[in-house]
Write a protein that binds this DNA or RNA. Structure first.
Lengths: 226, 226
DNA sequence: CCTACCGATCGGTAGG
DNA sequence: CCTACCGATCGGTAGG
């Protein structure tokens, strides 16, 4: 009457032995598009990001992740050394994408764009990172920073600095122009905090659009556009 | 050679039986000030708050808490139904204290105090809550909201509403006076987010005082005092 | 990448 | 409030 100590068997548990003649009747194969690629690793990262965001790192078991990626419980460890290494991969990948996309956004601005317009683009893009299509990665970083090991944190902090760097000259220009009343370095911390905290209360499916959200944030920090 | 399955024995493990004559030579008594009060429960809450903040709710075992409160592993369950009930108690107690102290702060303001001064008091007090003497409770709420059960969240949300209520008339007055450029309801979310996020980066032992921190936040949101 | 499993830890409890 | 323990779960691994 005791609970089995090992993983539950796969769906069809008819023959236990892997007799050569039974090979083709074994466990159903994965869908073709999910096999033989090198993107099993990506699938794990994607699944982990979603679960880590929804439930938290500690509350997500590696078995949950394996199931979400359509694998058996031990298989994520073929791709990742540890659960922590997987968290690191999620955060690193999300942050690298964010840096790349932010650079694109900034390059698409007119060369002479005023700092107000630059800040608007940065803020709007930041909300996109938080709530857009693959918007699980950065919230995982925001929530689970504590779960990274110190060396992992150092590794992530370097990429994070790349993300934050472009904000400073913009805030300094706004401060010099009198549009920003606080010290630019502290303003950056407060502003990013205000934006990041929105993952706690903003719901993209609600009435308020991301554009309107960004406009209100800018109103608060530097007043309405002139 | 296997690890013991039960808790490690108390420091002196000489006699196993509780022979009446040996009563007075048993396990050392707790310090007098920690005994016979009804405040063992408070000690557990206090210890849990500190550990939950430092390590997170999931990463803190009830054994850690028991040890920090100078008890054996099962004893917290004499005072609390479950680990979750303990988390709820921590958050509830912290929030109730915050509401009470905030009311005091507001009552000490001059009756005719302008909204700028009122917001300054609210912001300054909020930082006090986050970084002051027993500053573990509210950060636990901010970090571990997800770990509360839905009924617990509803219970806490009611007290949270009491805490947040006094902010709205102040922000509305500032908006009407032209000092606050964003919609007051959204401004409240952004402002509290900016303040709350500071637990991620501000260190009270650093160069920046809480007063200076509050002044900078006010500069950002409504400009320098006139 | 799966099978079958280990060792550790954890929340919680019966009984005193 | 302690003792002694249970059942479940979890991260991770050897071997194929």
């Amino acid at each position: 009457m005791s609970t089995p100590r090992s993983d539950p068997p796969p769906v069809p548990a008819t023959q236990a032995l892997d007799a050569p003649a039974a090979r083709l009747r074994g466990r159903p194969r994965k869908a073709l598009d999910a096999r033989d690629d090198g993107n099993r690793r990506q699938l794990i990262i994607q699944s982990a990001a979603r679960l880590f965001r929804a439930q938290g790192f500690d509350a997500t078991s590696t078995r949950d992740i394996a199931a979400a990626a359509d694998m058996r419980s031990g298989s994520p460890f073929y791709h990742f050394e540890s659960k922590n290494a997987l968290l690191h991969a999620v955060v690193e990948e999300g942050l690298q994408r964010a840096v790349a996309r932010q650079q694109q956004v900034l390059q698409q601005l007119p060369l002479q764009a005023p700092p107000q317009e630059r800040l608007a683009a940065l803020v709007r893009h930041h909300f996109e990172i938080l709530f857009g299509a693959d918007g699980d990665f950065i919230p995982v970083m925001l929530y689970e920073w504590r779960s990274l090991t110190p060396p992992q944190r150092a590794s992530i902090a370097r990429i994070k600095a790349d993300y934050e760097a472009p904000w400073m000259p913009v805030l300094q220009a706004l401060h010099a122009a009198g549009a920003l009343k606080a010290d630019p370095a502290l303003a950056r911390m407060f502003i990013m905090g205000a934006l990041n905290w929105s993952v706690q209360w903003y719901r993209p499916e609600g009435r308020l659009s991301l554009d309107a959200l960004a406009a209100q944030a800018l109103d608060l920090f530097i007043g309405p556009p002139t």
